[in-house]
Design a binder for these strands. Structure first.
Lengths: 188, 188
DNA sequence: GTCTATACGCCGATAGAC
DNA sequence: GTCTATCGGCGTATAGAC
């Protein structure tokens, strides 16, 4: 049945998403994804032909989730600074995941960057969608041609904080530095 | 002969160091390291019993290189700010490697953080040695109990800049943001 | 659509001749 | 110290019965 197939497909993607995040892409095997989604290894190939196909689907799902989250803040708030602050609040709410596994976008791209994979460029779009959104907010704050560098800088701060919070498993640092980042946002 | 053995061992470590950096640890096989160091795969095990042993040796070599670099700046300059600036200059000089493969310390630890490896804690010492050095410099600048957070912040900035420069293969961003970081250092 | 059985290669690692 | 030969296991992926 069509519907049930879609549900199973979805379940595979969600299991893979979680495992890729927690263990890394290379480190995660077909067998593990199948087990996590309670699916037989053989049947697996009915839904996805290669491991790269699964990653592609995971990237696409993450992309859409990111985009709809950013869009919801655009709708809910009119002040660009308020919108960007909500990105900070969201990061703070993810402290458990962040200190254990790092930034879902940053760590994935960083991993793919080391192998010669065509998926690397697809994965960079996960950071790009955030970058473009930040740029749009800074443009709305009349940063004009400075918007691009401000967006990059904002994203770099987030990535640096995430990485150190991850390496040292330090939630306090994460919370404190994101607060600091939001204060910086008020000043600029 | 003892000496020749040490030379070969060294050659293996250097080949592994390069490959682990450029391809990642998981992604690099024994065969590749053997080929890169012009050594027979079988003979390989005379020098290292397991792949983890090689990584351990690589970490140790990187650790000593880092430490001696930092120590040389301590000797050469008396002003702590001047010392820390040289870390920035060094990063700028590494632009080619950084945009292609990211920070050698950050990317390795980030990768190991995703597997349940005892080597993770050994690898964190590669960032720790820099962190402690930075802390010492900030202490010399009378930051007292603020030294620790300042060192973390400095390191986070570097990691964020490195990651974005790597993801977007952007040397201009790297150069510009490190300049900005050094300017920040003058102000604080 | 689901399952079993299995191909095939590369992985890290070992044994043992020289 | 150096080499050849090879093991056992797990990786992705496939063929084909049901």
């Amino acid at each position: 049945m069509r519907l049930r197939g879609e549900i199973k497909r979805r379940r595979i993607i969600e299991a893979a998403d979680k495992l890729f995040y927690q263990q890394g892409y290379q480190q995660t095997s077909f067998t593990e994804i199948a087990a996590a989604s309670s699916l037989n290894r053989g049947n697996f190939y009915y839904y996805f032909k290669t491991k790269d196909d699964i990653l592609r689907a995971v990237i696409q799902m993450r992309y859409q989730q990111l985009q709809s989250m950013l869009a919801s803040w655009d709708e809910e708030f009119t002040d660009p600074k308020e919108r960007m602050k909500h990105l900070g609040y969201f990061i703070q709410s993810q402290e458990d995941n962040l200190v254990h596994y790092g930034c879902p976008q940053g760590t994935l791209i960083s991993e793919l960057s080391k192998e010669q994979s065509s998926l690397y460029s697809e994965a960079t779009e996960l950071l790009d969608v955030v970058l473009k959104w930040l740029e749009k907010q800074f443009k709305a704050l009349d940063y004009a041609d400075k918007s691009s560098i401000m967006a990059m800088r904002f994203l770099a701060k987030i990535q640096g904080i995430s990485l150190l919070a991850n390496v040292y498993r330090n939630k306090e640092f994460l919370q404190h530095e994101i607060c600091d980042l939001l204060a910086w946002l008020d000043k600029v």
